[in-house]
Simulated scan of single mutants.
Amino acid sequence: MFKFYKILFLNILFFSTLIVISSYSWLSMWMGLEINLLSILPLMANPKNLYPSEAAMKYFITQTLASLILLFSILLSMNMKEFLPQNSSNMLILIINSSLFLKAGAAPFHAWFPEVIEGLNWENCLLMMTWQKIAPMMILIHNLNMFFYLSWIILISSILSGIYGLNQTSLRKILAYSSINHIAWMLSSMLNFKLIWLLYFNIYVILVFNLIMIFKYFNIYYMNQLNLIFNSNKLLNFLFMANFLSLGGLPPFLGFLPKWLTIMNLTSNQFYSLTLILIISTLITLFFYIRLTFSSFLLMKVELIFKSSIIGNFWFFSFNFISLAGLLTYAMIPNFF
């Protein structure tokens, strides 16, 4: 049963992000981020979470540190002439962006993110990997001035997420490092054309929602439990495989579209080295995605007699249809982008 206080704090969580998006001043943005932080903490206090207190404490300390750095840089910018040299705007932008990268979980400020995700249930993981990324990224969109610093954040996020994800057996940590890799792609999509970021984020939300719906239904958290999916139904098995490959950006699935547009945008603006490293890091993430789905389409398996009720779910089929047939739909629209 969905409790009243969860509905209350969930609404506050959504409205706090809208406050950040619609703000005209740094102080109101900071207030929206603080309300966002205080509203998600009660949602983490869930008996179904693995380590609710530890995850909430790690998240609170990290986000409070990022908020303090952001507030400190805002106060410095207001009194720049008194305390700082004349040409110090680049340093303030670097401090502000670093605090926002810490809030979003981009590498090298990422160490808290997989640890917090590991202690949460799938509903909270979905919130952390999707909705909680909107507010800091919307502030970053309006504050992208230091391209050299941003390029290093993109490179470190893409490389570290691929390397750290290779030896993981927890599905929550695999999705967490996958989220860090997608943050690198989203940041690179912001460089010149902001609409690509919006498309990328929406497609990422659809793909993560599809996977988390499957994991939540079967109560799966680790790789050795995946036989529950593989042996339940052939169609569900195929949808699981297709969503993971789509999350990795493999054509002809929908996840390939935003990466394709991002690559076109980067190459047209002569970011060739950055594009090459992003593609190589995505191949590393595709490796551990294929390792998860390897037994689903190459090895023999036993199918259970009874049918799973999730197969008859209309919304489940609708989101998976968007995920699988979305790229074909976009290809049929003339002069798209």
Rank of each mutant, 00 (worst) to 15 (best):
216 K>E: 11
304 L>M: 12
76 L>Q: 01
248 G>P: 06
130 T>D: 02
130 T>P: 05
80 M>S: 00
125 C>F: 04
256 F>K: 05
298 L>F: 15
215 F>N: 02
287 F>E: 01
49 N>K: 05
73 S>M: 01
148 F>I: 08
161 S>M: 07
194 K>I: 07
294 F>Y: 14
330 Y>G: 06
114 P>R: 02
260 W>N: 12
36 N>E: 06
320 N>L: 11
317 F>N: 15
290 I>L: 15
206 I>K: 10
136 P>C: 13
19 I>F: 12
86 Q>P: 01
36 N>D: 01
296 S>H: 09
119 G>M: 13
90 N>E: 00
156 I>Y: 03
174 I>M: 13
165 G>K: 01
217 Y>D: 07
10 L>C: 10
307 K>A: 10
5 Y>M: 08
283 L>Q: 03
266 L>K: 09
283 L>K: 02
101 F>V: 08
247 L>P: 13
123 E>G: 14
13 L>R: 03
111 A>V: 14
128 M>D: 00
287 F>D: 00
217 Y>F: 14
93 I>R: 06
271 F>A: 00
316 F>T: 08
328 L>I: 10
179 S>C: 07
324 L>P: 04
240 F>Q: 03
109 F>D: 02
320 N>S: 11
71 L>W: 03
45 A>E: 04
251 P>K: 02
241 M>R: 10
111 A>R: 04
191 L>Q: 02
10 L>G: 12
308 S>A: 09
153 I>Q: 02
320 N>W: 14
31 M>V: 11
224 N>V: 02
180 I>H: 04
263 I>G: 09
213 M>Q: 14
98 S>I: 15
77 S>H: 01
189 S>I: 02
113 F>G: 09
181 N>Q: 10
291 R>L: 14
269 N>F: 10
306 F>R: 13
282 T>L: 12
250 L>I: 15
5 Y>L: 06
108 P>D: 08
154 I>Y: 06
96 I>R: 04
292 L>P: 08
211 L>A: 06
259 K>L: 09
291 R>P: 05
98 S>V: 15
179 S>W: 00
111 A>K: 04
175 L>E: 08
101 F>I: 06
58 K>N: 06
88 S>F: 04
48 K>N: 12
312 G>F: 06
83 F>H: 00
157 S>G: 07
293 T>G: 01
57 M>T: 11
49 N>S: 15
95 I>S: 08
168 Q>D: 01
107 A>W: 03
64 T>R: 07
154 I>C: 09
95 I>R: 06
230 F>M: 11
209 F>D: 00
232 S>P: 03
247 L>E: 09
186 M>P: 11
155 L>P: 00
323 S>V: 07
180 I>P: 08
227 N>W: 07
204 Y>F: 13
119 G>K: 13
36 N>A: 08
197 W>Y: 15
54 E>C: 03
146 M>H: 11
11 N>Y: 05
243 N>Q: 07
58 K>T: 01
206 I>E: 07
280 I>S: 13
95 I>A: 11
62 T>K: 03
84 L>I: 00
